[in-house]
Write a protein that binds this DNA or RNA. Structure first.
Length: 609
RNA sequence: GGUCUCAUAGCUCAACUGGAUAGAGCAGCUGCCUUCUAAGCAGCAGGUUGCUGGUUCGAGUCCAGCUGGGAUCACCA
């Protein structure tokens, strides 16, 4: 037992109230039953009972040789007598509900308040790479990319907060038949149109010709089929497709004119993407381009072939046999010796570890339709002898569905990223105006606030759901700014800031330690403190699970608890100056914690709204 | 067809990884603005956790089977 007079808690993370309580319970078990126990089931107490922490006693009955209720009572009594931090307890069925002393809560709070880096772990010297976004360059970004980008960005931020140095990267799929299709359509119908001449965003312009290609291609195929050509042949013979294929071949042969057009059109796309990424608030340390990496990996495969890790078929194609791992055989080099997607990904992975030798692993933020691909990729890298293959993780996320079903570009049901962000910001502005909140704001402030709120609604909506699960995106619902939303949390933050401004104007100084002499906390205060105390654990859990949703839901719960306090306890009518000063400090920490948590989701917090 | 995955309130999602009477938001209904921001708070109503078995002190959670969605199984990316 820690007998220090000054503090029964250590401010040194990760030691905290929970781990202290655990060790006290372990001591109790050891003393009472003469046995040591490592795993304790500690959970938050249900709201209907008194207490904050609950020990589940059923698993302990084996060593206590008592009924669950008796076990709980015995431990409860011991804790009250021997552990300073527990003042009362009650036992309901097999659950031991513990009441933590208010002076302990006060001390927990004071240590959090004093620690400016609360919830941020010190640098651990480790490095990791997070890949996300990775679009094709033939069309604009859409709703699916938004989930990907917000998720990847957030996971990278989570790693940073737990002490990692993070390298954010993406691989841009800038070559291949898809971009040649846009190029072909542009050549035929473009009349030299450029972003400048048309006023269109570059990615939108290139996307327009991709659609144009598809339209003409379909018409040509139909015409051929009507002339009696088989569908399979028609698909190959359609003149516009022949042109696209021809361009692909010319590109691979480095034909100057084709390469030039390819560079120009991709350049348009990149300019467009830059605008979109900027508004999303995401960034990248290094960009990989498929045109640079698509030939990589072949040597690795050939080396693997020599070592007998892979095998060659009669037609000259190279394969890996994964049947011992429960998977199939997979081609790695075509019979003509060219690479496939997998080959290239092997090469890129190795290249990245050469570029960033200190990274311990890579996180690939890619949709769950590629689960099989990554399973195979990591297995192959392992077979090639790369130890880090074990530390590669496919952050697989579910598809975003619309109320009308799946997004399909052919059916024009794709939700464009730029349009959606704009709609959200417009809705936020309209709502802000309607509520009459902008009377004293300049136009710039209003614009910035609308931007903050609109994107918060969107990001929170996409991040609050467990990434692994497929989710439904209902535009009407996402545009909502009340309830379980980002703006609700922002609002809580702005509210607290208003209190802090008022306190400052009244010369009230926050004092976290003021409460030490106070007997009892308000129930609502204890609830908020409990949440604030949880923050580091939630952060760790979120990183472990690769789940920003855990942070998002945590922030929501904390905001909700604070709002309950806000309504239950009017701060400035408090006559006891110690309580008043404590509550200012308490509000400060809540706002700071909300801000930190939301920053991990890429969401900014307004000072007023 | 093989493999993987999902199914919780009318709708969208939670449920601390096997623990108490399964919780929030939206939608519906009822209250609360002369006190720090009502984008809020309090309350009502809403459930056979797809179905059937099993494992155990205890199952939304684990196992088996069934039903119904989705993904994947290319010398595509």
């Amino acid at each position: 037992m820690n007998t220090s007079k000054d503090s029964i808690l250590t401010t040194q993370y990760p030691m905290n109230l929970d781990s202290l309580l655990r060790s006290e319970i372990q001591k109790a078990v050891a003393a009472l039953f003469n046995q040591s126990v490592e795993q304790l089931q500690l959970q938050p107490t249900n709201a209907e009972f008194e207490g904050s922490h609950t020990l589940v006693c059923f698993p302990l009955t084996k060593i206590s040789k008592l009924k669950p209720e008796e076990t709980g009572t015995a431990i409860g009594n011991y804790l009250v007598q021997h552990a300073d931090i527990v003042t009362r307890f009650n036992v309901v069925k097999g659950f031991l509900n513990l009441v933590i002393a208010d002076k302990v809560w006060a001390e927990v709070f004071a240590s959090i308040y004093a620690n400016k880096k609360y919830g941020v772990l010190p640098a651990n010297g480790k490095e990791i790479m997070v890949e996300y976004s990775s679009p094709n360059t033939n069309k604009p970004l859409h709703l699916g990319h938004l989930r990907n980008n917000f998720l990847g960005y957030s996971v990278a931020e989570l790693y940073k907060a737990t002490g990692y140095t993070v390298h954010k990267v993406q691989i841009i799929n800038d070559r291949g038949i898809h971009i040649c299709k846009s190029m072909a359509a542009w050549k035929l119908f473009g009349n030299g149109e450029t972003p400048e001449s048309s006023g269109l965003k570059g990615d939108k312009l290139v996307g327009k010709y991709y659609v144009e290609f598809d339209k003409n291609y379909k018409a040509q195929v139909k015409e051929l089929v009507e002339k009696g050509v088989s569908e399979a042949d028609a698909e190959k013979q359609a003149p516009i497709m022949k042109l696209a294929v021809d361009m692909l071949q010319k590109w691979e042969a480095k034909d100057a004119e084709t390469v030039q057009r390819w560079k120009t059109m991709n350049g348009w796309v990149y300019n467009g993407f830059d605008v979109t990424y900027k508004r999303m608030g995401v960034d990248f340390e290094k960009l990989y381009y498929e045109s640079d990496t698509y030939l990589l990996g072949k040597d690795e495969v050939l080396k693997g072939l020599e070592k007998g890790i892979f095998f060659k078929k009669e037609d000259g194609s190279v394969w890996v046999d994964l049947t011992p791992d429960g998977l199939d055989q997979k081609v790695l080099l075509r019979s003509d010796g060219t690479s496939v997607y997998m080959t290239q990904d092997i090469g890129t992975a190795i290249l990245r570890f050469r570029d960033f030798p200190k990274i311990e692993g890579q996180v690939y933020t890619v949709g769950n339709e590629q689960e099989y691909h990554f399973k195979v990729l990591f297995l192959i890298l392992g077979k090639l002898g790369y130890e880090w293959a074990k530390k590669c993780y496919h952050l697989s996320y579910g598809m975003v569905d619309l109320p009308t079903g799946k997004m399909k570009s052919r059916e024009g049901t794709v939700v464009d990223a730029d349009d959606l962000m704009q709609e959200m910001v417009d809705a936020a502005r309209a709502q802000t105006q309607e509520l009459g909140k902008i009377d004293e704001m300049s136009k710039e402030e209003v614009d910035d606030l609308a931007e903050m709120i609109g994107l918060s609604a969107l990001k929170f909506f996409l991040l609050k759901v467990d990434p692994k699960k497929r989710m439904m995106f209902d535009p009407k619902e996402s545009i909502q700014l009340q309830g379980h939303t980002g703006p609700f949390i922002q609002y809580t933050h702005a509210r607290i800031k208003a209190i802090l401004r008022k306190a400052a104007s009244m010369n009230i100084v926050a004092d976290a330690a003021a409460l030490t002499n106070v007997d009892a906390l308000e129930v609502a205060e204890r609830e908020v403190l409990f949440k604030i105390n949880q923050y580091p654990n939630k952060l760790l859990e979120a990183v472990k699970e690769y789940s920003p949703a855990i942070v998002a839901n945590y922030a929501y719960e904390l905001a909700k608890e604070y709002n309950q306090f806000y309504q239950a306890v009017p701060i400035f009518i408090e006559s006891d100056p110690a309580k008043l000063r404590f509550r200012i400090a308490f509000s400060e920490v809540t706002a700071a914690t909300l801000k930190k948590a939301m920053a991990l989701l890429g969401i900014r917090m307004p000072e007023r709204m």
